[in-house]
């Protein structure tokens, strides 16, 4: 048997899991959005993220070679095997928390995929170059909402500030590479995410200033998602996500 490139598999799973879990979270809003247009916007974003995750899972299945398919990778792994960013698994909370989670992530994802489109791995380059076109819309939509809520009513500002306090501790992880990420970055396939910290902070600061919000300083940062140590939310997400495949193995739509 050929030895699979484990670092590459882990890296692809990290990219796939992150987009899958955020997609899953956003789709929880389906039918519950504050107005129809925004419900549709959020579920459209969920669909884009799902498409990205499918591309990464399909590629991970090929690289891992272990009779895996995109479905076995998405539906049949356990919590500790998921490598998504902790930020993406945080609960939807209220509209402010959902919006802020999307903005903080999309702003990072845009900068990150801008680099990955030049990956030495042509498949990663192709997936991310294509995804960038969609992420551009996600950044624009979510940043407009951050401004609208932050610089909105007294109530919306209170909620936005509460969302910042809740979510900010999960942003640090985006810029702390796991060991497989470092290896992959060194090979020219990935990109050193720590390099993006400053520019991300700058972009967020610009939007926050327009939204009359304040960027927190010196916050303890939670980590672990990239290596499979998750917050207590993860088990509940997987229970719902995997239920059908666990209850009726191999069932097809």
């Amino acid at each position: 048997m050929m030895n699979a490139d484990n670092n590459l598999v882990n890296y692809l799973l990290h990219l796939a899991d992150t987009t899958l879990i955020l997609s899953q979270r956003n789709s929880e809003w389906c039918g519950h959005g504050p107005v129809l247009e925004q419900d549709i916007a959020l579920t459209n974003i969920a669909l884009d993220l799902l498409g990205q995750s499918r591309n990464f899972y399909q590629y991970a299945a090929i690289v891992s070679g272990n009779n895996h398919t995109e479905d076995t990778l998405a539906y049949l792994r356990t919590e500790r095997e998921y490598k998504n960013l902790l930020l993406t698994e945080q609960p939807n909370g209220d509209w402010a928390q959902t919006i802020l989670r999307q903005y903080l992530f999309s702003q990072f994802q845009y900068l990150y995929f801008e680099q990955l489109q030049y990956s030495a791995d042509t498949q990663i380059a192709a997936i991310t170059a294509k995804a960038l076109k969609e992420i551009k819309y996600h950044v624009r939509w979510s940043s407009e909402w951050v401004i609208r809520l932050g610089d909105g009513t007294e109530e919306s500002k209170v909620r936005m500030n509460a969302a910042i306090i809740t979510l900010w501790p999960y942003t640090g992880e985006m810029f702390m590479p796991a060991s497989y990420e470092q290896t992959i970055a060194f090979r020219g396939i990935g990109y050193d995410c720590s390099e993006l910290k400053e520019i991300w902070q700058q972009k967020v600061k610009t939007i926050f200033e327009e939204a009359t919000l304040i960027v927190p300083e010196k916050v303890f940062m939670q980590t672990g998602g990239k290596n499979g140590t998750h917050t207590e939310n993860m088990g509940y997400i997987l229970t719902e996500l995997q239920y059908v495949q666990r209850a009726y193995p191999n069932c097809e739509w």
């Binding site: 247009e37 549709i40 459209n44 819309y137 939509w141």
Partner: peptide
């Protein structure tokens, strides 16, 4: 523009 996301992934409202 009412919404940058419409009835399908390729459309805005």
């Amino acid at each position: 523009c009412i919404s940058e996301f419409g009835s399908t992934a390729c459309k805005a409202l």
